[in-house]
Nucleic acid binder design. Structure first.
Lengths: 133, 133
DNA sequence: TTTGGTATGTTAGAAAATCTGACATAGTTT
DNA sequence: AAACTATGTCAGATTTTCTAACATACCAAA
């Protein structure tokens, strides 16, 4: 849960993000303009990107390469977000509250493992081998 | 294994490092001048710091606060380095290799994917992790 | 006490990086 | 053909960082 903080901490200027993602500054700003990312700013108005932002830009690039346009990407992202909040809601739903602590811990553990193992699998399949050797 | 590479990726401009370490730019440059750190540079000669650099600056700050002077810190660091190489010298020869941008992107991407999948693990270690809880 | 070294602050001027806004353009859609 | 999409490019302004120099408080040695 400190994880969220770490991954959302504003760290990188646009020059680094360009190298990291192989996107042009124009593209990155354009995607921001269309609300695909929301990097924060310094006091002097310079963009600062987090790991999550970079992650998201890599996803965007992937989708662009696959021919998806901005609107499509926006849809995909809002769908993903819906998935996430759905999971959180079901976790907090009333019938879940009747669980014993033991059951809860067990659930949490398996949930984390499943999410870990299969969370993003569809998106990455095939890509993954390239990055691990 | 790719850990070394991740932790040595040049990522942060000095402005970010100032915030992360609560050191002044003057201090950071002074420590570089005395070879306590060796941040890399952009084509335009701007410093770029890695996670390791930031970690090291936090160690430096700690030691300064404890009254150790630059020479002392230098000694401590060379001792630590000796310890490390002693431990692993039977496994690897510590040759320094330059990263291509492509390699850097690959590692970042896989790191981000791993972080998303397994919730965290290797990206941030050492003292720097204090800032992410 | 004077001198000198250490670690840091501050300032100035130059260079690099980034910002926004505008116009250009190759493809695609209508 | 006209409009739209996604990106390139350029200009001028602003922010950030650079080096070099000088200032200073503290401490220690001569």
């Amino acid at each position: 849960m400190g994880d969220h903080i770490r991954r959302n901490m504003p760290l990188f200027p646009i020059g680094i993000v360009k190298k990291l993602t192989e996107l042009s500054a124009r593209q990155i700003r354009y995607y921001e303009e269309h609300s695909l990312i929301q990097p924060s700013r310094t006091d002097g108005n310079q963009r600062l990107f987090s790991f999550n932002d970079v992650d998201r830009l890599l996803e965007i690039k992937e989708l662009i390469d696959q021919g998806v346009n901005i609107s499509g990407i926006k849809q995909i992202f809002t769908m993903k977000q819906a998935e996430k909040t759905k999971k959180v809601e079901s976790f907090h739903s009333p019938e879940r509250k009747e669980l014993t602590d033991q059951q809860l811990r067990s659930y949490l553990k398996s949930e984390l493992m499943m999410a870990g193992r299969f969370g993003k699998a569809s998106l990455i399949q095939g890509e993954l081998s390239r990055f691990f050797h």
